[in-house]
Design a protein around this nucleic acid. Structure first.
Lengths: 235, 235
DNA sequence: GAAGCTGCTATAACGCGGTTATAGCTCAAT
DNA sequence: ATTGAGCTATAACCGCGTTATAGCAGCTTC
């Protein structure tokens, strides 16, 4: 199918190099000339393959969403849906902590995939097949929330609405932590993220005891996962 | 006191014009030449007063924090601390909804006031007198949380830790809404923010009935406030 | 009151980064 | 072999942040 992968993966290499420059040097390092030098081509490649730097940055943002979705997809499902939600949260937080510059760009863009497909389309009407790929990451939270409701851990509720609450809280924590408001290292997880998760679970109908137990289960699963696979290791 | 306010408020006018350009044209419109033309001076003014565009943008970000703090300070305290928390949330959301570009810059900067004064300093140790002005906004939430604990609405807990949970959730909602993920208009408030607030209040110890009552009280207070003062109207 | 110092200003130029015009190349199809 | 499409490198253009420089107002000092 691909008889000549000679040097025709320039487009992909540009995006990869862009993410590398972004993570290493911040947004200021994301320049057409540096990018071209990094890949070993001329700046024209940016225009033949993307049309301009802004479109390339859009592609970088889209790649961030796809990587996040892929990471969340690796979490899988256990018999404890609330623990799965905590595992998704840890994964979401880990992705942003490892590549803060990339996800700053990703979240800095407006609604992914264009201007439509807002969450309100999901929570209010049934135009849900229009769900863009940018909402794939959200779908993982929705499914775990649905299972928590079915298992009786959460009160009966609109799964999209409940998941949007969880996503808001998680995203807020991750964003503020990435901005430096919660200090460095893992302390934000123990001091804020886990208590926040318990608060939300209890508020959605879980008991304090079961919620706390689920945080421990998620922590154990996290340790096992990071031990086996290093950290990340996707792609 | 000010015998010659002739043309010596150039620095303030530059910041004001920067915020205006930012809100009207986005980050791309925030240019030294446009800024100078807007104020009626040359681009040199940016360098004599700030030293460069980045320092001016930092000042814009700082101004955003101060405006947010000023808005939150206007909320005041009632006998229902949970309702006050909801009022703070509505105000926080309103500020960002009205000037999304300004607060995108404000939140885009790292921890305000430099690199220190993270929240972990507040939640773990007592080096709290180092609290920067950037955390003034957070203080309003902390105080309302403290009153909610004292009133028995929330379970006994570390007020900073509980407030950080509320702030994370609120900030996440506001950020995602500003990115377009929750649709336009006020629907995000009713569909997500209010349910999220109830979830958090209940998770922190309140009853569903009292939490719902407080959301109604906050909504009524909000209507009264926006009716009297238009909207915003500070400065 | 004249001299000098300080702070602010406008003008003009420099450097860098995004972009574009253009010509040459490779390769598949005819 | 010829043609044409797609990709490429080179080189120039343009806008924006920045800086060098000179002029000017106002205050201090003798």
């Amino acid at each position: 199918m691909s008889p000549k992968p000679r040097a025709t993966d320039v487009k992909e290499r540009l995006v990869e190099a862009a993410i590398r420059l972004l993570d290493e040097g911040g947004p200021e390092a994301l320049q057409a000339r540096k990018l071209a030098a990094e890949v070993g081509v001329s700046t024209m490649a940016v225009y033949t393959h993307f049309g301009g730097m802004t479109a390339l940055v859009d592609e970088v943002a889209r790649t961030g969403f796809l990587k996040l979705s892929a990471w969340l997809a690796e979490v899988g499902e256990t018999e404890d849906p609330v623990a799965d939600i905590f595992s998704l949260a840890r994964t979401y937080r880990q992705a942003v902590a490892e590549q803060p510059q990339l996800f700053a760009v990703t979240f800095g863009q407006s609604a992914p995939g264009g201007e439509r497909a807002t969450l309100s389309d999901l929570t209010t009407e049934e135009g849900r097949e229009a769900a863009q790929e940018g909402l794939e990451a959200f779908d993982h939270i929705v499914r775990a929330t649905e299972r928590a409701i079915e298992a009786g851990r959460f009160r009966p509720a609109d799964k999209y609405q409940a998941a949007a609450q969880l996503w808001s809280a998680l995203h807020g924590f991750v964003t503020l932590e990435a901005s430096g408001h919660f200090g460095a290292g893992e302390q934000g997880i123990d001091h804020i993220l886990i208590p926040l998760g318990i608060t939300l679970a209890v508020g959605l109908g879980d008991t304090v005891e079961r919620a706390e137990h689920s945080t421990e289960a998620a922590k154990a699963a996290w340790r096992a996962r990071t031990r086996n696979a290093g950290q990340g290791g996707n792609d």
